[in-house]
């Protein structure tokens, strides 16, 4: 690990504050699923992925697809922190506003450093599969990481892609399920049960690892294990807490898709000191 867990935790706290501020300023957005994804996205961008934020078009960079595109604030905050040229830190609070590069969902037209436009759930794993097939065809070393929501895997296309990825043996593809247990209408188990999740991925031929998605060492080790897994793709089922880091947002379906009020934002930022 190039970055220590203490350093990563400091970054994660910074990113969480930014998420709350951005969504608060936008007065709309998805705090819960942005906060649950923070450790995974931070670990990927600050440690696991071979990327060069100063040279985002580097052909051999690892790719990251935020298939759960509504967690865009987490991605934007990380990209701004890392100094991507099209992610100006001083404009983060223009999220979702007219004219902002920080569109409601990731949009390559506004931010070419993003690897794929997403937002319509269920499609990012297929995009990642296409990328992984190209990397292998061209015998290039880059890897593709796709972050999925747990509610998102209710989409049938996810399983078309899951079937095809193991059939094509793309071991350079990693899916990460942000298993926070909540979707827009409520708890996943009440809307459309997806359990048992790991068993489903295993049945589709994926090397599957279950971890605590807020544990740096667990995320690091799982990504490392994925890289060393040959002949099949890896799925990391990351158990997370929706709204992680802000007590009144944690496990609260209300904050799937609702911005904090100014008072709530102040409270949240205090907790994230």
């Amino acid at each position: 690990m190039h970055t220590t867990p203490q350093q990563l935790s400091a970054i994660a706290r910074r990113v969480r504050r930014q998420i709350v501020e951005m969504i608060g300023a936008a007065k709309s957005g998805h705090p819960g699923g942005s906060l649950s994804a923070v450790e995974i996205i931070v670990e990927l961008f600050y440690d696991a992925m071979r990327i060069d934020p100063k040279n985002p078009a580097w052909a051999d960079r690892d790719r990251f697809i935020l298939s759960k595109g509504h967690a865009a604030p987490a991605l934007y905050a990380v990209m701004a922190d890392l100094g991507y040229p099209d992610a100006p830190p001083d404009q983060l609070n223009t999220l979702r506003k007219f004219g902002s590069v920080y569109q409601g969902h990731p949009d390559v037209r506004f931010m070419p450093s993003i690897d794929a436009s997403t937002g319509s759930l269920g499609e990012g794993l297929s995009i990642g599969l296409g990328m992984a097939l190209v990397a292998r065809l061209d015998a290039r070393p880059w890897r593709t990481y796709v972050m999925l929501g747990d509610g998102e895997i209710q989409e049938g296309q996810i399983w078309e892609a899951a079937m095809a990825a193991s059939f094509h043996k793309v071991d350079n593809l990693v899916a990460i399920v942000d298993y926070n247990g909540i979707q827009l209408d409520g708890f996943v188990k009440d809307i459309m049960e997806i359990a048992p999740v790991a068993e489903k991925w295993r049945a589709f031929g994926w090397h599957t690892i279950e971890i605590d998605g807020h544990d740096w060492a667990a995320i690091h080790d799982a990504l490392h294990e994925a890289e060393n897994t040959k002949g099949r793709p890896t799925c990391i089922v990351a158990h997370t807490i929706k709204g992680k880091g802000v007590s009144f947002m944690e496990n609260n379906p209300k904050f799937h898709g609702m911005a904090p009020t100014p008072a709530e934002m102040e409270l949240a930022l205090k907790e994230l000191q």
Partner: peptide
Amino acid sequence: AAAGGMAYAG
């Protein structure tokens, strides 16, 4: 969608 991914990759 996978074709989209292939096109993203050139």
